[in-house]
Simulated assay, not measured.
Amino acid sequence: MTIVTGGTGGLGRGVVEALVDAGHDVVVTWIMEAERDHFPDHLRDRVRLERCDVLAPDDLARLVAGAGDDGVWAFVHLVGGYLDGAPLGAMPLDDWDHQFALNARSAAIALGAVLPGMAARGAGRVVAVGSRAARRPFAGASAYAASKAAVIALVEAASEEVRRVGVNVNCVLPSVIDTPANRAADPGADADRWVRPREIGEVIAFLCSTEASAVTGAAIPVYGRA
């Protein structure tokens, strides 16, 4: 079984499509009913949708336990968010904490939920989503960049813990993703240069394959032409 958290969002749909096309038996988590209700019909028939709050460890533990005897082969953590914030000195601490909860804390909970079972079985793939901003921070995104840098550090540390037992942990670093929300937020931009969700999905599908056995602890740029 392959679990995709945040798979109902703009990025998630492209990733889920790539995974199911690659033959994965996919479970997609949701927390907002509006995103669940707008999940595309052509994918809805090919996956199982499960309500799960990824910031609640018990919710994720139940989801992982429901995988049965075969367990979770791949876990793709897409949950995250960007807050266009104030300069660092003027940023409310609540905004800072929200970015770290959504991006870094959710990733830590996800890794903690799935890695013990994978390590016990001696096989598995985990892919998280960082950001180019973690490598190239920009003004107004200090909390976002720092929280995504924390995701990279979590992936690297987790990989060191499980790489010798056959479990691979990686992350991808998108630039600007070509989603309806990003087009609406920046209507004057050249969106043709942005990376498409399906393109990111193809990279993630490879990282979730047996062919990617030599890749672990990596933070892979998926910038498109941006």
Results as ranks from 00 to 15, higher is better:
N103I: 04
S131Q: 04
A139L: 10
R121W: 01
V20R: 05
T5Q: 08
L102T: 15
V222D: 05
N168V: 00
V203L: 15
S147P: 11
R44H: 01
A107C: 14
A67Y: 12
A219G: 09
W73H: 15
V222Y: 09
G85L: 06
G68R: 08
V47E: 08
V54Q: 09
L88Q: 03
R51S: 06
A184F: 07
A34R: 14
R136K: 13
G122S: 08
L115M: 10
L115A: 02
A128H: 11
V47C: 10
R163Y: 01
S142N: 04
C208D: 12
D58C: 00
A128Y: 01
G81N: 05
F138K: 13
A219F: 08
V169M: 01
A158I: 11
A191P: 00
A185Y: 13
A191S: 14
A149W: 03
I200E: 10
G71S: 01
D59R: 02
V167T: 09
A146P: 05
V167Q: 01
R48P: 03
A101N: 14
L83C: 00
D84C: 02
G201C: 02
P180Y: 11
V114P: 00
A65I: 02
A146T: 15
G14P: 03
T5L: 10
A157P: 02
G6S: 12
V126D: 04
V76Q: 09
R105F: 03
G12Q: 11
P197D: 10
D186P: 00
H24F: 07
A56H: 13
L154I: 10
D58S: 14
F75C: 02
G80K: 06
T2R: 12
S147K: 06
A133H: 12
A74W: 02
G68K: 07
L60Q: 08
M118K: 01
P116L: 04
P116Y: 05
Y82R: 11
A113K: 04
D94Y: 02
I31E: 12
L55R: 12
R198A: 12
D192N: 13
G71P: 01
A104S: 14
A218K: 11
I204G: 07
V165K: 00
T8V: 10
V167F: 02
A153K: 03
S147A: 14
R51A: 13
E156S: 06
G188D: 15
A86S: 13
L88W: 10
D70G: 15
A150G: 07
V76G: 06
L49H: 07
G112T: 03
L55D: 11
E211F: 04
E202M: 06
L63D: 04
T5R: 07
V169Y: 00
A158N: 12
M32K: 15
G68M: 09
G217F: 03
G117I: 00
V172N: 05
A146K: 06
G10W: 07
A56N: 15
R193T: 14
A56L: 07
L63C: 03
R44Q: 02
L154Y: 03
D190E: 12
S147Y: 11
V129F: 01
Y144K: 09
D178N: 13
V195F: 08
L111S: 04
I3R: 05
R193F: 01
A181I: 10
T5A: 11
A134E: 14
P180L: 13
C171H: 05
R121A: 14
G7Q: 08
P57H: 09
E17H: 11
V151Y: 04
